[in-house]
Computed example of a mutant assay.
Amino acid sequence: MPYFLTNLAAKLIGLYINILSYLAPTAANRIAYMYFSKPLRGRLKKDRLPIILREAQQETITYNNAVFEAYVWPGNETKVLLVHGWESNASRWKLLISYLKKSGCTIIALDAPAHGLSSGDEFTIPHYAEFVNVLVNKYQPQYLIGHSLGGATALYFQAHYPNPFIEKMVVLGAPSEFNSILQNYRKLLGLSNRVFNKLNAFCIECYGMDLKDFSGAAFAKKIDIPGLLVHDRADETVAFKEGKRIADAYPNATFLITNGMGHRLHDDGLYNRIYDYLFNEKQVVSNEEIA
């Protein structure tokens, strides 16, 4: 859908929610949260899986009344777990997987809640982190790689689920502040103060903490394993300052800055750097910039 139509549809939805908030405030709040937490893209059909996922060993895992899909490309005892972002699925790792395979490692990926073949209609970072925790305990990977909200989930996971398995993290294009995400959503739909304040209170109830504390930077402060953080200066989806906040807070992180790769961060040169960081133990200079 062209951007201007997408933007117009968002504004019309926001107008409807704003009006409904005076007539049926509970329903308005429920609809506002639904649009905030429900991905519109990223689903997969089992009979139409991308080739990269058909090449993997698939496992459907049931956990706390939820079902999620995991994919394993078998290799040696070194294991890497891949955590994708919003409105995506495990197939987003196709290019990186081709690099990781060169090491001979075992690669594990999963579909987030309400994405890919996993169940549900709602995505939250704490719920996603529960899925990650199941796989970390099952496969005991040494390396964890996350992109976008998958990167934020990786930070949340490592801060809230201490474990002896993860030795290094790679976090790509992750947002830091939950409040920033919420404010962007408010701006997109043009939500009134009345609706936004109720949505904010509802999110605090759902996440079980003040949203000011729900921060990638706050989570990063608690992590002591080495991490490689990557963010593009021209990222139009997650502002560069978000990645910088995480890097400044993470005590044992290297911050790699890219130019012109955008939010997706699909690049041969970058993937070579990630490969070297994980498997060749080559030093990456913090705040180094690559094109």
Rank of each mutant, 00 (worst) to 15 (best):
D213I: 01
M209F: 02
T106M: 00
Y156I: 14
D213C: 05
S118W: 04
H115K: 09
S215K: 08
K212D: 15
Y99V: 10
D121Q: 11
I125E: 06
G173N: 05
Y63V: 04
E77M: 03
E59L: 10
F219M: 13
V67P: 05
A253C: 10
L110N: 05
T78P: 00
I97E: 07
V195D: 07
L211D: 09
S176A: 14
V285H: 08
Y143D: 00
A249W: 06
L182I: 11
P25G: 09
K38D: 10
L144A: 14
T62F: 06
D210H: 14
I13P: 00
G42W: 01
T62M: 06
E59T: 13
I246T: 04
F123I: 14
G190K: 06
Y99P: 11
L95H: 07
P164N: 07
L149T: 15
F4S: 09
L182V: 12
N65P: 02
G262Q: 05
P175W: 04
N76K: 06
A129D: 12
S215L: 03
S192R: 10
Y185I: 08
E281I: 05
Q142L: 02
G42L: 08
K222S: 14
V170K: 08
V170L: 14
L191C: 10
F202Q: 13
C203A: 14
G269P: 00
Y156V: 10
D268F: 01
D47Q: 03
A10D: 11
S91P: 06
Q183K: 06
N18W: 01
C105G: 02
N64R: 14
T26D: 05
S118R: 11
D268Y: 05
S192W: 09
R48P: 00
I204D: 07
R273P: 04
E59Q: 15
D232Q: 08
W93M: 05
L95Q: 12
H231L: 07
A109L: 06
V132L: 12
M34E: 13
T124M: 10
E55K: 15
V230I: 15
S21R: 09
P141A: 08
W86I: 07
Y3W: 12
I274D: 03
A218L: 12
K46T: 00
G120T: 05
M209Q: 13
R273S: 04
F214C: 02
P141E: 07
